[in-house]
Computed example of a mutant assay.
Amino acid sequence: MEMKELKTKSEILEAFSLMKQLRTHLDEKTYLELVLDAQEKDRYKMFALFDGGELAAVTGFKPMITLYYGRFVWVCDLVTDVRKRSNGYGAKLLAYVQEWAKRNQYESVALSSGLQRTDAHRFYEDKMDYDKVSYVFKKSLK
Rank of each mutant, 00 (worst) to 15 (best):
K142S: 15
E125A: 13
F50Y: 10
Q105T: 10
H25Q: 05
E107D: 13
M128V: 15
T66D: 12
K20R: 13
A56I: 02
V58Q: 03
F123G: 08
S17R: 05
L13K: 13
Y68C: 04
S140R: 14
C76Y: 07
K132A: 13
D126G: 05
N87W: 00
S112N: 15
K4V: 15
K132T: 14
E11C: 12
E28G: 03
T80V: 13
T80S: 14
Q116D: 10
R43T: 13
R85A: 09
F137D: 11
V73D: 00
E54G: 04
Y68N: 10
L6C: 09
R43M: 06
D42C: 11
E2A: 12
F50H: 04
R83L: 10
V109P: 00
S134Y: 05
S86F: 01
N104P: 08
A57R: 00
K9T: 14
A38D: 09
Y69H: 09
L93T: 04
Y44G: 05
M128S: 06
W100K: 06
D42M: 12
Y68G: 09
K92T: 09
D51Q: 08
V58W: 03
E54Q: 15
Q39V: 12
T59R: 00
V109Q: 00
R83D: 11
Q116A: 10
L78Y: 02
T66E: 10
Y106F: 15
A57E: 01
Y96C: 06
Y69L: 10
Y124C: 11
K41H: 12
D42F: 07
D51A: 11
L141C: 10
R117V: 07
A15Y: 02
Y135I: 07
Q116P: 02
L94M: 14
I12E: 01
L78V: 11
K41I: 09
L115D: 09
M1S: 14
D37F: 06
A120P: 06
I12H: 00
K127Q: 10
F47H: 10
G90Y: 01
N104Q: 11
L78D: 01
R43F: 14
L22F: 03
W100G: 05
R103P: 03
A91Q: 08
L141D: 10
D77H: 05
A120G: 09
T8F: 08
L111G: 03
V133D: 03
K29M: 05
V136A: 13
E5T: 14
K4L: 12
H25F: 05
M64G: 04
A110Y: 03
L49D: 01
S113I: 07
